Amino acid sequence: MPKIIKPPLPTRSLTNSRRLRREQTDAERELWQRLRGAQIAARKFRRQHPIPPYIADFCCIETKLIIELDGSQHSAESDAARTRFLEAGGWKLIRFWDSDVLLNIDGVLDAIWNAVGPRTLTPTPLPEGEGLKEQKP
């Protein structure tokens, strides 16, 4: 199998993502403790992952899911432009307020699991002989 060669990241993106990893907010730190090590649906997450020209707070490459934490520094206009750009690249975004992570981490984790967890689209049939049995009169 031929080796896939990825172009290098722009130096600015790489530098910024490293800085953001060092300077996490309390909400980012709390969520990262729950996402790291494939704790949710055995999915690997990355934090402060560059997707030029943006840096995703958290992402799962396998499912193309980005998790964004919004605090007071976010504006609706810039977030909408960012969302349109990333969705055009095939990513799905879910957003949470920092306060949601700090006050309702279980609800946030449930929403993330629902976004990445395995789903059965149709009911799984019972094995032969384990369904309702006909009763003879």
Rank of each mutant, 00 (worst) to 15 (best):
S78D: 15
S78L: 08
S78V: 13
A80T: 13
A80G: 11
A81T: 09
R82F: 02
R82P: 05
R84L: 12
L86D: 06
E87P: 03
E87L: 05
A88Q: 15
A88F: 07
G89K: 15
G89D: 07
G89W: 05
G90V: 05
W91Y: 07
K92F: 04
K92L: 05
L93N: 04
L93D: 01
I94D: 02
I94Q: 03
R95S: 09
F96S: 00
F96N: 01
D98R: 07
S99R: 12
S99H: 14
S99D: 15
D100Y: 02
D100H: 11
D100W: 09
D100Q: 15
V101R: 01
L102A: 04
L103D: 15
I105T: 10
I105Y: 03
I105W: 01
G107M: 06
G107E: 11
G107W: 09
G107A: 13
D110N: 14
I112W: 02
V116Y: 00
V116F: 04
G117A: 11
G117V: 10
P118S: 14
P118A: 13
R119C: 04
R119F: 07
T120G: 09
T120R: 15
T120H: 14
L121D: 14
L121K: 08
T122G: 05
T122E: 13
T122H: 14
P123H: 08
P125L: 07
L126Y: 14
L126R: 13
E128M: 03
G129I: 00
G129C: 02
G129P: 04
E130G: 01
E130Y: 09
E130H: 10
E130F: 11
G131S: 06
G131V: 04
L132F: 10
K133C: 03
K133S: 09
K133G: 02
E134W: 12
E134V: 12
